Amino acid sequence: MRARAGGIAALVLGAVIWSAAPVSAAPAEGVQRTTIGAAERATALRFWTDARLRSARDLDAPPAASTPPAASAAGGRQAAPGTGEEVRVAPLPAPGAAAAAPALAASDPTPWTGGGLISTTAGKVFFQNAGGGTFACSATVANADNKSLVLTAGHCVVDAGTGEVYRNWVFIPGYANGDRPHGTFTASSLFHLDQYVATAGNANYDLAFARLAPLDGRSLGDTVGAQGIAFNAATGREVHSFGYGGSAAEGNGERLNHCSGVEYPDAGREGSTMWGIDCVQTGGSSGGAFLADFDAGSGGGYLVGDISVSAGSSEYHPVLGNEALDLYRQAGAA
């Protein structure tokens, strides 16, 4: 994500076409799925040496398009993400998880030392673009039928300008100072919304799911647990955000950081349906969790969005509406 609006230029991820890119398919209207085979996953595991993890750049969000091109040309307003009846999936406790310490209110990013479910389900994402650049984001395990999903930002999966889906995509749950306490999980499928690319990166649709392959015969959820997730949830309530920001004050991307506050609507971007809090986590936190109903005793809650963009002293997340629910159901069935 961006540290401040206008403070960091858009990160250009390259326009070189990668000839060996996996084949993408659309399993449902509005959903794009990229399937990654066993050979590519093995390559990803070999690729991400400790040295490459250290050299990966913390990814900043590209500027959020205020309206889709067609709407801008017509002078109209974009459609908001669909809403409907709330759907909630409860958290999955981690095996033998210890209780979390009480969560303290934080309007600036502070190190998360509370332990609990968030300490195992939050993690870092690493990937490579077609030009060979290596980058880092954040993601969070979301409970699903296949016990194998993480929620992250759309811009951590696909280049909205070119439609390029990134390769060598891995997730390291509980990442801390280069340690991989639960191993390195490779993506077997990546899912993003058609609208995100069709609108050239409108942040209202800046979300994605990754389906992770089992590691040593165990699913991601059975290894580290999973956060709950809620779609069409109520807004304007207390939320907690977690990410691996890359600034020196946030530990240079080597530790999990935490913010909290009562969320408010994004009033600064025409057509925005996003909600945010008075806090800014910097590049590398993109894709990190926004959790509602966060329980300080367990470290668990319900995902209601991912860290996407920031402006001034605020960071914002897209809402998880009907489009996100369709994406989740497709990813959870993969």
Rank of each mutant, 00 (worst) to 15 (best):
G115A: 07
A38K: 07
V141D: 14
G123E: 08
A160T: 02
T83E: 10
V158Q: 13
T43E: 14
G154P: 02
A101C: 02
A142C: 03
A94T: 00
R46T: 13
Q78E: 13
G76C: 08
P173H: 08
V31Y: 11
Q128G: 04
G114K: 04
P68N: 12
T120L: 06
R77S: 15
P63D: 15
Y175F: 14
V87A: 10
A64C: 15
I36H: 06
V125I: 04
L92V: 08
N168Y: 13
R77Y: 08
A176M: 01
R77Q: 13
G133W: 01
V87E: 05
V89F: 06
A142Q: 01
L117V: 04
A51I: 00
A94F: 04
T162Q: 11
R57Y: 12
R167C: 13
A130S: 09
R41L: 14
A106N: 09
G132Y: 00
A56C: 08
G115E: 03
T113R: 11
P69T: 00
T49R: 10
T152I: 07
T162D: 09
A160V: 09
A105C: 04
V89R: 11
A100E: 07
P91K: 00
T152Q: 04
S138V: 07
P102H: 06
K124P: 00
L45M: 10
G154K: 06
P173S: 03
V31H: 08
W112S: 09
A106I: 01
A51D: 11
A38T: 09
D50P: 09
L92I: 02
G154Y: 09
G161Q: 07
A73F: 14
F127G: 05
Q78I: 06
W48V: 11
N168L: 10
P93G: 10
T43M: 06
L104N: 02
Y166L: 15
W112R: 04
L104E: 14
P91N: 05
T83Q: 12
P102Y: 08
C156L: 07
Q78F: 11
P109C: 00
L104Y: 05
V170G: 03
R167H: 15
E164I: 09
A80C: 08
A97G: 13
A56H: 09
F127N: 02
G82F: 10
E40Y: 02
R88E: 01
E85Y: 01
R77N: 10
